[in-house]
Write a protein that binds this DNA or RNA. Structure first.
Lengths: 329, 329
DNA sequence: CCTTGTCATGCAAACGTTTGCAGAGAAACA
DNA sequence: TGTTTCTCTGCAAACGTTTGCATGACAAGG
């Protein structure tokens, strides 16, 4: 690790001014092409890499965005992180990642600490109260994902219509008693999904039951499985695939057959076909959502805070192997 | 997003010099305590946050480390990422995350691009050839995780002894035909684990069979399940839990009972108890490994590249529900 | 041949910190 | 009271870029 060469050294070595070297990287169109080539070749030779901090200081642009998720271990987030990463890289930006550990205080501290150092912050599935988010959104460049707060820039994965389709499908199969098994109470998605299931159940004249798998873990859902079938539900919609999977784990232990005895539909399509039977679920175009959010952050048309825009992507129902006609007793 | 206050503005407002404000943050012991209080209070009031880029430029310390993983969607990595994150934060450092997408070229480009901007790089489960890693390690501050390359700093999760224990256990149950289902060929862990299974099988006089689930995905393993039992294996050790899970998926479809017909042991303990039956596996103290690596990166005793130290953490066998006596035909 | 314009490059200031050095008091000592 | 030591603070240079402005060379147009 020899101290790395600076633009000045490279310039001296080439007999040009530092500005020329700088421009060879940032505004090559201003230089003669052979000058550019010469500089680039020399840079390559001595292993020159521009110092990002100096650049950021000079331009006022950070060259990075931040990404905050509540729990990186939840399989829903990694694909989103990867997508954000790819789009950021394409825009020439690096990504700072932070995990709020489902803790609102920690999340807020992270936002305050990171926001000044980056172009903007992608806040995914925030657990903060709406008022705080609105406030923070007024002070920093935030793009919310999966959280609908008026007055902020937000991109939403909207399960409503897919849930309607799911319930129509279940009703069509003959199910009449539907359970919703919810996740983290601070999650906007959870509230939205529960409301959608309830509303649509009423519309279709189905009996609706609501449960909550507190922390939203596999184990919590598994522990709930007995209760859910005990109360007579023949179909359950879970907040996400992790909970759906937990329920399946519980049912397997109790010899409750899926989909024979009970149908299950998850959400997020985070598990692909890794369950047995393969889980029916609601799938989102996560990559596009991430692209939208990153793009908003990097579009410097707005020098200040982001416009209060609401972008929604609808999910789609994908039926695999966990839904069928209810067993007639 | 009003332009944020600088140290100079804060200083002017307080009637002190910028150095004093700077020291209030970095070397408060050099100032009178009431001066420190006054500065901190004013900073708090106007919302001053030090500019990290300026600081980095001035001190030459980046205030961040980089983290490169081959596939963030593989459940083995998120816990590791989180652990690294936490330890870095504790040391006052942020974390740049990048995903090499299992692509060696991309991985190398990432290392070269990121290394100069950070204090050091955590390279997890590298897919690069040893020679490249040795070379890069000589030029940048790298800490390898899960890759044993002489001449570099590396922390290893060593499955050998746990695999020995696993095979002893299986042999004790009466198994005689053992299969190893491997993952990515570029993975050091994969080679290490295969070798350990093979060696121990010979020692115990067991019949050893080796398979490879090419890309190391759930689907690839699932597709292999028929072949594996077809060839008479009664117990299989999988490269990791994802593959073990894939095999279980395949067995479930083919009505091969686990553990009745075939016993399975995974590795990494990435799935906890979310399979049915709960997967027996090999567990590692990932948090400690991450701590070790981050600590090495942040310990600036060595200003240049890291010492060529090898730190190994042994895994331990955890038996859950996928191992039992082989069925006697 | 002079003017005007274009193109490629250089000069120097600025970005917001940190930090070695120096200086002003105040305190301690003789 | 004079000297020394200590504590606190300020000055100014440095970190490595970028970029507005100025300049010189050269070509084109008259």
């Amino acid at each position: 690790m020899i101290p790395r060469p600076t633009i000045t050294q490279l310039a001296a070595q080439l007999g040009v001014s530092p500005s020329t070297v700088s421009r060879a990287f940032t505004r090559p169109d201003l230089l003669r092409t052979d000058t550019v080539d010469r500089v680039l070749a020399a840079a390559q030779a001595v292993g020159y890499v521009p110092n990002n901090h100096a650049r950021a200081l000079s331009t006022g642009k950070a060259g990075a965005i931040g990404l905050i998720v509540p729990d990186i271990a939840n399989p829903f987030f990694p694909p989103l992180i990867r997508a954000a990463q790819n789009h950021a890289t394409a825009a020439g930006l690096a990504v700072f990642l932070a995990d709020s550990d489902e803790n609102p205080d920690r999340e807020e501290r992270l936002i305050i600490a990171m926001a000044p150092q980056v172009e903007g912050l992608l806040v995914v599935s925030s657990r903060l109260p709406s008022s705080r988010l609105r406030d923070l959104s007024g002070r920093y460049r935030l793009a919310l994902v999966n959280r609908d707060v008026g007055g902020t820039f937000r991109v939403l994965l909207d399960a409503t219509s897919a849930i309607h389709a799911a319930l129509s499908h279940l009703a069509g199969l003959g199910h009449t008693r539907i359970a919703y098994v919810g996740g983290p109470e601070r999650s906007w998605s959870n509230r939205q999904r529960r409301a959608a299931v309830e509303k649509r159940s009423r519309e279709l004249g189905l009996h609706f039951m609501s449960y909550s798998a507190g922390p939203g873990t596999y184990e919590a859902a598994k522990a709930l499985s007995r209760t859910v079938v005990g109360n007579g539900a023949t179909a359950v919609i879970a907040f996400d695939d992790v909970l759906a999977h937990g329920l399946m784990g519980g049912f397997a232990e109790e010899k409750v057959d899926v989909p024979g005895d009970v149908s299950i539909i998850g959400c997020d399509d985070a598990l692909a076909t890794t369950t047995f039977p393969p889980l029916s679920t609601i799938s989102f175009r996560v990559d596009e959502a991430a692209a939208e959010a990153v793009h908003a952050l990097t579009a410097h048309s707005s020098p200040g805070t982001l416009p209060a825009t609401r972008v929604a992507f609808e999910g789609s129902l994908v039926l695999r192997g966990t839904t069928s006609t209810p067993r007639r007793d």
